[in-house]
């Protein structure tokens, strides 16, 4: 839920999703769910030449499991808060 919570705060930000097949898609994060499935708008594929089939695609829904990385805008991440949230979650996990 922590990461889901983080992604919720990043809606409408530009993120770069790198898939496990090395496809990199930059787009505006429109929504995310608890499986970290991601919906992107106004996408750009970083290596157009290698993935010409993506040229016409303007938005996409990415299944969470195929994601390797998501590059986030650092200015929109509060690292201190993030660490606290992680500690809270870790604490609540051990309690259970």
């Amino acid at each position: 839920m922590l990461i889901f919570s983080v992604f919720k705060t990043l809606t409408d930000q530009r993120v770069t999703v790198e898939l496990k097949n090395d496809l990199s898609i930059t787009g505006t994060l429109k929504s995310v769910d608890q499986f970290l499935n991601i919906r992107l708008d106004a996408i750009e594929v970083s290596d157009q030449a290698r993935h010409p089939h993506m040229m016409a695609v303007k938005n996409c829904f990415i299944r969470g499991s195929v994601v390797r990385y998501v590059q986030l805008p650092a200015e929109h991440v509060d690292t201190q808060l993030l660490e606290d949230a992680t500690r809270r979650e870790a604490a609540s996990q051990t309690k259970r």
Binding site: S5, K8, T9, L81
Partner: peptide, 24 residues
């Protein structure tokens, strides 16, 4: 879908988003 997200303590489980949005 929403029912899957329901938790006992929505503030705790959504801590980051809650506090972050409060800060923003």
């Amino acid at each position: 879908q929403v029912s899957q997200l329901v938790t006992q303590d929505p503030y705790a489980d959504d801590f980051y988003a809650q506090v972050y949005s409060a800060i923003v």
